[in-house]
Amino acid sequence: MRRLDTGMTFVEILMAVVVLSVLLVPLVTLMTTGFRDTQATIDEVQAANLAGELVEQLDALPFSALPPEGPVSGVTLSTQSGSLADGAETVPGSGFRFHLSALPPTFSRELSVRRVGSTRREAVVTIRWTLNGFPRALTMKRVLVKDAILPTM
């Protein structure tokens, strides 16, 4: 009898399970949200880097190598078109090529270039992706201007 006295009662265990269950529900929810937000963070950082990568490349390109060349405005190039793929020429025949990081699954990359006068282009880079079935996107803008004729002075 004395040995029985030293154990836990069923009631105690039952109460512990109940309490633990009550505690675990929000904790699991919190963890789940955290994991989801972590993925969102990863995605957003990736998206920002992908956008920045393209914007900086555009800024470094010679003006004549900027897509589109010619009297075209509002042209959108998408990943699927192949023109905005890694290794693709920025303008056919220009010799300048995109050097782009591989896109993670569910990501896509868009570039919209608007011609403004003869010395200026306006570029908008949009990165799209989905997170848990929800569409996400971010954009980055850059004014691009014609470079000087040659290194001078």
């Binding site: 937000d37 969102a40 990863i42 920002a48």
Partner: peptide, 9 residues
């Protein structure tokens, strides 16, 4: 981290 990701962007 999420806020920082926003800030990075």
């Amino acid at each position: 981290q999420n806020v920082k990701a926003h800030l990075i962007y």
